[in-house]
Design a protein around this nucleic acid. Structure first.
Lengths: 143, 143
DNA sequence: GTTATTGCAAAGGCTTTGCATGGGG
DNA sequence: CCCCATGCAAAGCCTTTGCAATAAC
């Protein structure tokens, strides 16, 4: 399987875009993200590696990451778009604790299959999905 | 079962808020929404009934609708928050066509049950969830 | 009458964009 | 060398907020 770096560079090449140092830095920092980062958070990490990179470039590069399929855009409803790598980790859904705001990755193969069935039943060609479960996590329930 | 109107007025009463004409109009227009409306769309409908109502009031009232449980906030990732009534219709999830942008309501009881199981398996207390399926709808597939 | 609510306009936060400069192919 | 990508700052978009006027209770 191709690496995210390879996929992204391929995408740039195919679209006659330059593989600039800034884009490489943003990609590397993004792939290290173990959370669902906003562009702002990503920018704050990026300038630790290269303080001359502007937030505009981060926003522009993140768009390219999404277009190339390396990043997935998430929307938890808090007014900020968030992003996560699509390739370093398998597909998963999200549980968001409405108390402590913690976000945990979850996955259930049976649900995945039923989503496919549901789509087919309606004649849809399912390309991707997002599922967010809201509630109270086990830690917060104990308190 | 209580009507949305009743629930909303109860909520206002309990929180010592006034049942103003503006709030009543926004609620009525909102309940007629057969789509997932943004505040902007809702505002455009509201001023057809009363052109003196400001968009600020619509934004403020929609927040109250969510807090009272009459409205549910949705986030399809297009930079706008959308809302839909929670009481005129049963719970459902969404299918979004990435081609024609049409949004269709779907529901699958087996998925609902598995979501509960999945939450329990992780010790979560599940209060609600959102599931959005992205793909190409049957109409667009024919073209 | 007192207090909450409104409309207006201005400000806010996040994101995009125009433009001149600088770097990649 | 040409053109794309960048940084900067300004603008855009959706949403919130401060304030004086107004209406609800």
């Amino acid at each position: 399987m191709l690496s995210p770096q390879h996929i992204f560079l391929d995408y740039l090449l195919k679209n006659k875009m330059a593989a600039t140092e800034q884009r490489r830095v943003v990609l590397e920092v993004f792939l290290d993200a173990d959370e669902h980062w906003s562009c702002e958070q990503l920018y704050l990490e990026v300038i630790k590696k290269d303080s001359t990179i502007s937030s505009a470039t981060v926003y522009r590069t993140v768009k390219l990451l999404v277009e190339s399929g390396v990043a997935e855009q998430l929307c938890f409803g808090d007014g900020v778009l968030r992003f996560e790598p699509r390739f370093n980790r398998p597909h998963h859904d999200h549980f968001v604790c409405i108390n402590c705001k913690n976000k945990i990755d979850v996955v259930d193969e049976r649900i995945e299959k039923l989503q496919q069935c549901l789509a087919e039943k309606h004649g849809f060609l399912l390309t991707r999905h997002k599922m967010i479960l809201y509630g109270i996590c086990s830690d917060c329930r104990k308190k």
